[in-house]
Simulated assay, not measured.
Amino acid sequence: MADTPVNAEAEHSVKPTPIVPPSNIAGQALSLVIAIMSFLACLTVGAVLMIDKSASSWQSQISREATVQIRPARDFDIETALVEAQAIAASFDGVTDARIIGLSQTATLLEPWLGKDINLSELPVPRLVVIRIDERNPPDFKAIGAAINEAIPNATLDDHRAWVDRLVSMANTTTYVGVAILLLVLTALVLTVVFATRGALASNHIIIEVLHFVGARANFIAGQFQRRFFWIGLRGALIGGGAAIAMFLIFQFWAGRNLTTAEGVQVAVLFGDFSIGMGIFIGTFFVIALVAALTTLTARLTVVRTIYEIDEQRADPSRQSY
């Protein structure tokens, strides 16, 4: 009996079934989980960058100035003492300017606590002289403080070093906490991908075992899974990163509209103006790339490990389950 000719067109019209059918992996659910964790990771990176930027700004502003505080006392001409302290401070090398804070400016500084229209002449309020410092050639603060104390016993020099040290400590602590949170989020991501990959392997275990038995290499089988999981991870990371950028833009818009209010000023002092700089975009791109790479690598390692366990069970019949 003659062989029946094969219809080449019909043969090519049949598409091969993928080793990892999309329906066998809860791709949407996994993408949603990855998107949520990527969103949290991007928020953490952005928040750390903004706090670090604000801390650097605070530190720079504080290190550029020092303050002479003169306390009022009975039978003490504080106005003359202010002028004398200004002259002493301005005479030192490294001091670019010495400025007396007037009564109106002092009242403005105290307004949040004492209210408006206060009469400072009736209150024992200390007066200030602000000294602007050359950052490249700072003065000898001990010498300035000693000279001012010798001339004006009621005066003290504050070079803000204690504030700078506390500020640096707070910024470093915040950075460490942010990095720890980021590591926890990425660890949760890896564990999620591991369980999802094992679930996909369980539903395709027979197919994978047969393919491996007839000669399909572990790299080939793992490649099918890692491509699938790469697109799942990339899609989730893009959604989470895009949502984080949108959140920062919303905060920036809110800060721009409410910067003149008391709440806006306090938020701006703590976290800056929520401006979206290149650092946040670079950090978000890094998180997206890292999440996609971790998803792909974790899927591959999990598949290779599972195939290795299959080989061990085949080599040791006592470990096979019936």
Score class of each variant (00 low, 15 high):
61 Q>L: 15
61 Q>M: 12
63 S>R: 03
63 S>V: 00
63 S>W: 03
63 S>L: 03
63 S>D: 06
64 R>S: 15
66 A>H: 02
66 A>M: 04
66 A>W: 00
66 A>T: 00
67 T>S: 12
67 T>P: 01
69 Q>L: 12
69 Q>F: 06
69 Q>W: 06
69 Q>Y: 10
69 Q>C: 07
70 I>M: 02
70 I>P: 02
70 I>N: 05
71 R>W: 14
73 A>M: 13
73 A>V: 15
73 A>W: 13
74 R>W: 15
75 D>L: 06
76 F>S: 11
76 F>H: 13
77 D>R: 12
77 D>A: 11
77 D>K: 06
77 D>S: 14
78 I>C: 06
78 I>Y: 09
79 E>Y: 12
80 T>Q: 15
80 T>Y: 09
81 A>T: 02
81 A>L: 03
83 V>Y: 09
83 V>N: 10
83 V>A: 10
85 A>P: 01
85 A>K: 04
85 A>G: 05
85 A>Y: 03
87 A>R: 13
87 A>S: 15
87 A>Q: 10
87 A>N: 10
88 I>A: 04
89 A>P: 12
90 A>N: 13
90 A>E: 10
91 S>E: 10
91 S>D: 10
91 S>K: 08
91 S>P: 11
92 F>R: 06
92 F>N: 04
92 F>M: 07
93 D>S: 00
93 D>F: 00
94 G>L: 00
94 G>I: 01
94 G>M: 02
95 V>T: 05
96 T>G: 09
96 T>D: 08
97 D>W: 02
97 D>C: 04
97 D>R: 08
98 A>E: 05
98 A>P: 05
98 A>Y: 08
98 A>H: 10
99 R>V: 06
99 R>P: 12
100 I>H: 11
101 I>Y: 05
